[in-house]
Design a protein around this nucleic acid. Sequence first.
DNA 1: CACTTGACCTGTCCGC
DNA 2: TGCGGACAGGTCAAGT
Length: 281
Amino acid sequence: MPELPEVQTIAAGLNKYLPNLQFAAVSCDTPKLFPNDPDLVNMHLLGSQVRQVSRRGKAIIIDLNTGYSLVIHLKMTGQLIFVSPEMRDKIPEQMPGRFTHIIFAFTDGSHLYFNDQRKFGWIKLMPAEEVWELKFLKEMGPEPLMEAFNEKYFAEKLKRRQMAPIKAVILEQKVVAGVGNIYADESLFLSGILPSRSAGSLKPKEVKALCANIKKVLAYSIELGGSSRKDYVNAIGQKGDYLDEAYVYGRTGQPCRHCDSPIEKTKVAGRGTHFCRHCQK
DNA sequence: CACTTGACCTGTCCGC
DNA sequence: TGCGGACAGGTCAAGT
């Protein structure tokens, strides 16, 4: 489900509601989604209070006042939905729902639901200082909206990935954090580059444009609250609007917004890939 | 090392 | 209406 703009929206939403709430109980019907030692959970999660909620790439991190943190990855279909007693009659769907697998209860009567249709996601409890030792976080590339992700860095990375399709390279979290299938297609469209082009074939001007357009499309989607294909909702269950504005993603057969040619769909790097043959070379 | 493919799960959608 | 197959926003392990 979620790429950077969606995870950003969820983390920001949670950060509005969770700080200072105290964990009262946790239940889970699918242990692999919450692979934590019950003793650790009792000692460091239950009774603890939330300090803050943040994001790195597509991971969500909830820091606790016990020096422990919850690290969360939603993968394809994960959702995190917060429901307070006052909100309960206003939420779009009944919670817990059909796909709710983990429930956190807080002492004030509110709840945080982890839903995941495909059960790929997970939540790990660990000491805060170990979070950044997690392999995937340690190796993660720069945040695309920060200055560290710039033309020079990007060109340098691409040098080592001459043969791979450019789309495969920007999907790689070690190269740049947070880009997924939707924003890969969108940023390549805005840059006029076919997703199947080898990374090594990009001219300096194209590298520069792609770097800028990754930033642009992610920032714009954050403004619109992210993309909702089917599963994505924010921390209080609302959908995002980016896909109403999308250039190519999910628009197979519809006219290109720039030239009216039909948007085509193929497979690149094993993923469904949308592009305009006329606007992208 | 660079790159590709399959696996993880389950639901939905499309074509016959 | 029913059924099989393809596909789905992410990542990792194992393969070439």
